[in-house]
Amino acid sequence: MDKAERTKQYIIETAASIFNKNGYDGTSFSDIVKGTGLSKGAIYGHFENKDELAFAALEHNLKLASKIIFSNVKDRKSSSEKLIGFAQSYSLFFEIINNAGGCPVINAAVDYDEGISLFRKSIVKFVTMWQNSITKIIDEGIKKGELRLCDELTAFSSIFISLVEGAIMLSKVMNDRKYIDDASKYLVSMIEKMKA
């Protein structure tokens, strides 16, 4: 990475944290200037406007969230263990997520209005990837005889995501991690019931 690329990456990483904590409307260019310690001109040298920087920051936050969550899944062997890894990730890494301002998926989904369709597309793409990952694990588990076909599997990926996102939001708002811990335990109990 040359100096210009390193500077651009530094701006994205710094702005990603600021946008995730303050929201799009709550973040001014002055906040970015103050956070990075760079001049407005230096930032505009890499990004045409606030939207372009906010989009790069969102993409960075989503990649970071994905890396954190999947780190607890990748080395697990059976389908049920992978699903349990997913379920436990949010409780396990809650402090990291909370200190970063909360989950970038729900923050961005609530924050970016319909006027910025690029952000919505990015969030939809991420949630779809998340659902597909869970569905793929379930399908493989059924084929291998590790999971049994049952009513709980039909909407499991959307219930999983809804429960996790809601629990993260409640834990953040109530300043009490019990909501995400309870959601994680509940998901694990659901997964245990689906084992063949």
Score class of each variant (00 low, 15 high):
Phe119Met: 08
Arg120Tyr: 06
Arg120Gln: 12
Lys121Asn: 14
Lys121Gln: 11
Ser122Gln: 10
Ser122Val: 06
Ile123Lys: 00
Ile123Ala: 00
Val124Met: 05
Val124Pro: 03
Val124Asp: 11
Lys125Pro: 07
Lys125Leu: 09
Lys125Tyr: 13
Lys125Phe: 13
Phe126Cys: 03
Phe126Thr: 05
Phe126Arg: 08
Phe126Lys: 11
Phe126Ser: 04
Phe126Met: 06
Val127Phe: 00
Val127Trp: 02
Val127Ser: 06
Thr128Tyr: 08
Thr128Ile: 09
Thr128Val: 12
Met129Gly: 15
Met129Thr: 11
Met129Leu: 04
Met129Cys: 05
Met129His: 12
Met129Asn: 12
Trp130Asp: 14
Gln131Ser: 10
Gln131Leu: 10
Gln131Tyr: 14
Asn132Ile: 07
Asn132Pro: 07
Ser133Asp: 12
Ser133Leu: 12
Ile134Ala: 02
Ile134His: 02
Ile134Asp: 01
Thr135Ser: 09
Lys136Asn: 03
Ile137Gln: 01
Ile137Arg: 01
Ile138Leu: 02
Glu140Pro: 02
Glu140Gly: 06
Glu140Cys: 02
Gly141Met: 03
Gly141His: 02
Lys143Cys: 09
Lys143Asp: 14
Lys143Gly: 01
Lys144Ser: 14
Gly145Asp: 09
Gly145Leu: 04
Glu146Met: 05
Glu146Tyr: 02
Glu146Lys: 14
Glu146Ser: 03
Glu146Asn: 04
Glu146Gly: 08
Leu147Tyr: 10
Leu147Lys: 07
Arg148Thr: 02
Arg148His: 14
Arg148Glu: 06
Leu149Asn: 14
Cys150Pro: 00
Cys150Gly: 04
Cys150Asp: 11
Asp151Ser: 11
Asp151Thr: 11
Glu152Leu: 08
Glu152Gly: 07
Leu153Ser: 00
Leu153Lys: 00
Leu153Pro: 01
Leu153Gly: 01
Thr154Glu: 03
Phe156Pro: 00
Ser157Pro: 09
Ser157His: 07
Ser157Tyr: 09
Ser157Trp: 09
Ser158Asp: 08
Ser158Arg: 04
Ile159Pro: 00
Ile159Met: 04
Phe160Gln: 09
Ser162Gln: 06
Ser162Asn: 14
Leu163Gly: 06
Val164Ser: 04
Val164Gln: 11
Val164Cys: 11
Glu165Ala: 10
Gly166Thr: 12
Gly166Cys: 10
Ala167Asn: 14
Ala167Lys: 10
Ala167Thr: 10
Ile168Met: 15
Ile168Phe: 12
Ile168Ser: 03
Ile168Lys: 04
Ile168Leu: 15
Ile168Asp: 02
Ile168Trp: 00
Met169Cys: 11
Leu170Ser: 13
Leu170Gln: 15
Ser171Phe: 15
Ser171Ile: 15
Lys172Ile: 15
Lys172Ala: 08
Lys172Pro: 03
Val173Tyr: 10
Met174Ala: 12
Met174Asp: 14
Asn175Gly: 07
Asn175Tyr: 11
Asn175Gln: 08
Asp176Tyr: 06
Asp176Lys: 13
Arg177Asn: 07
Arg177Cys: 07
Lys178Leu: 08
Lys178Asp: 12
Lys178Gly: 00
Tyr179Trp: 13
Ile180Asn: 00
Ile180Phe: 04
Ile180Val: 15
Ile180Leu: 01
Ile180Ala: 01
Ile180Thr: 00
